[in-house]
């Protein structure tokens, strides 16, 4: 999600003050070409897998589609607060990835329109082009392409926000996307088999959330981020309580490929599953509440 993803937007500065100083020191300065310089930026970047990865994973693992888990596109017009709007944008983007992964063409089309409208309101509309919309319509019979287009919308959103130094909006969108992917996955599991791959993927959200949280902390001076950090404390508490078993040393398989994380396990109990579900639900409910 730093794909968490984190922007290293470097600022170009052409400093006339520096130029004047140079003139004093060196009389030949007029013969020199001015040289652009860049300011050093943060050296850490936190990435997160996109919601699309989660949905492809649950689809591959036989989890059934449940359209009722998606946020109703008709509600999109009711969000006026910029912080909430950015979070909801992330939620709808994840919903689009969900319907696309499950080949729900009609739902994807509606959600694409919604995401597009919201992107206009967030002034990032150029990432959702008319051409892309036409692509979706042209690919109604080709669900694989639909999923690719949905993924592309997400990457483009991330890229656009990074390019334009809108880390705050990107962070809020990432929260929305992550919350929605976990909300849908938790609520799609009918029988909670803690040994199942899906349960393991839920437990692995502990480390994904770590990256998200670190990213938010890096940007906590941006509009609305500290408030969201505060609201995420219960989720943080629950995920922190999941026990991690250390990995064994990395090794090479017979084919020569390296193996990392062997023996690593993040434990999840039924109680923790329920607590996480409640915490995610509580966060989502307040995030999508109307007229606030």
């Amino acid at each position: 999600m730093k794909k968490l993803i984190l922007p290293i937007s470097l600022l170009l500065i052409f400093s006339s003050c520096a130029e004047q100083q140079e003139r004093k020191d060196d009389p030949t300065v007029e013969k020199k070409q001015p040289e652009a310089v860049v300011e050093k930026q943060s050296n850490s970047y936190y990435a997160m897998p996109s919601p699309e990865q989660m949905f492809t994973f649950i689809y591959d693992n036989g989890i059934a589609f449940n359209k009722s888990l998606v946020l109703d596109p008709a509600l999109a017009d009711n969000y006026n607060d910029p912080v909430r709007k950015a979070i909801v944008f992330g939620i709808y983007t994840a919903d689009l990835a969900y319907t696309a992964a499950y080949e729900d063409v009609e739902g994807s089309l509606k959600l694409y329109k919604t995401v597009r409208e919201l992107s206009q309101e967030l002034e990032i509309e150029e990432l959702m082009s008319e051409e892309m919309m036409q692509n979706i319509q042209a690919n109604l019979e080709n669900p694989d392409s639909l999923s690719l287009i949905a993924g592309e919308s997400y990457y483009k959103a991330v890229q656009h926000l990074e390019d334009n130094g809108q880390e705050g909006k990107l962070a809020l969108m990432t929260i929305g996307g992550w919350i929605e992917s976990v909300h849908i996955t938790l609520n799609s599991m009918e029988n909670i088999d803690l040994e199942s791959k899906t349960a393991q993927r839920i437990a692995a959200q502990k480390i994904t959330f770590d990256n998200l949280y670190s990213y938010l902390e890096l940007n906590n001076d941006k509009l609305g981020i500290q408030g969201e950090i505060d609201k995420l404390q219960e989720i943080k508490r629950v995920l922190s309580s999941l026990k991690e078993e250390k990995s064994l040393k990395s090794e090479k398989k017979s084919g020569g490929k390296l193996v990392f994380g062997k023996g690593k396990k993040i434990g999840l109990t039924k109680e923790q599953f329920s607590e996480l579900k409640s915490a995610v639900q509580a966060y989502r409910v307040q995030a999508i509440a109307q007229n606030i």
Binding site: I8, S44, Y45, M48, N211, G261
Partner: peptide, 26 residues
């Protein structure tokens, strides 16, 4: 498959950057 955690950045000579990512089981 392309993974959305991919990233590019401008780096300078002598610079070191840390990139944090998640690798999922399986």
């Amino acid at each position: 498959k392309y993974d959305s955690q991919s990233k590019s950045a401008i780096m300078a000579k002598g610079q070191t950057s840390k990139f944090h990512m998640v690798a999922y089981n399986g």
